[in-house]
Amino acid sequence: MPALPAPQQNHLLAALSVEAQNRLFPHLELVSLPLGKVLYESGDSLRHVYFPTNAIVSLLYVMESGASAEISVVGNDGLIGIALFMGGESTPSRGVVQSAGYAYRLLGQRLKDEFNRHGELLQLMLRYTQALITQMAQTAVCNRHHSIDQQLCRWLLLSIDRLPDNQLTMTQELIANMLGVRREGVTEAAGKLQKLGVIEYNRGHITVLDRPRLEQLSCECYAVVKKETDRLLPYVFPRLNH
């Protein structure tokens, strides 16, 4: 039986000092995040924040028609629920698990108490929020100006950056919902990547085989997000700074 993930598998939690960890870790609750689980709906008042360890959560904007598009992805690089410490308490987006795994849940008030100490957590959360805003802005630009092929490459890179390995479980229908495009377009784009030997796709299981080639095929949007994240949070992405 595989070992359960430790809190330090989330890079934000790992970046905290021992003193801050000692204050927060006793209050963390390990929760399972199955594929498709909705952590919150648009307009919900948030009570908890989630620190993913080996899961990915998509933040989606859902239209009145039911159509949706992803505005950002969060994995072991960050947390779900920035509205809690930014003061808004709710958000117009929906949080959905796009790759199953685990996360550590913390009562929002506990995070706010630590945030209001005006110490390292405050700096860390503000820097993370700036990185997340960059990802959201670049996603909007990418969806408007780049092909489905390029969008899929960007999305795959952002996803595996936020997982402990190069594999994720995700159906083409879910990917289409994330990107806000037709499923047929995703099927065609994924087929091209598979023929090139960049990915292996089998029954909803995607393995990235050639990351350098995937980066070449992606638009500049991925590099912009990664560069800004590395600049803001160099101690949060140790695995990626190579």
Rank of each mutant, 00 (worst) to 15 (best):
D210R: 13
L240Q: 13
L193R: 08
G75E: 03
I175Y: 03
L179M: 10
D77V: 10
R182E: 15
M170Q: 14
E220P: 06
A137G: 10
G87A: 04
M170S: 06
V208D: 11
P238Q: 08
S42I: 12
A3H: 04
G180D: 04
Y61G: 05
G43D: 04
D149S: 15
V62D: 08
H145V: 00
L156Q: 05
Q150C: 10
L217P: 04
I175K: 06
M1Q: 05
E89H: 06
V38M: 07
R127A: 15
L196G: 05
V96S: 02
Q9T: 08
V181A: 14
L168S: 07
V224F: 10
I133M: 14
F85A: 00
L209F: 09
A190P: 03
R127N: 15
N241G: 15
G81N: 01
V97K: 11
I133W: 11
L156N: 09
A83T: 06
Q98K: 08
E29G: 02
W155L: 14
L158P: 02
P238Y: 09
E70T: 03
H146S: 09
C153A: 15
I133K: 14
D77T: 11
S72F: 09
G88V: 01
I82G: 07
R183M: 12
R182N: 13
R183H: 06
V73P: 00
D161E: 09
Q172V: 09
S218K: 10
A20K: 02
E19P: 02
T134K: 11
A14R: 10
S159L: 11
G75T: 01
L84I: 15
A67L: 01
P234F: 06
H205W: 11
A3F: 07
A83G: 02
T171Q: 10
Y104Q: 04
A131F: 14
C219D: 15
H118W: 10
T129V: 14
L152F: 03
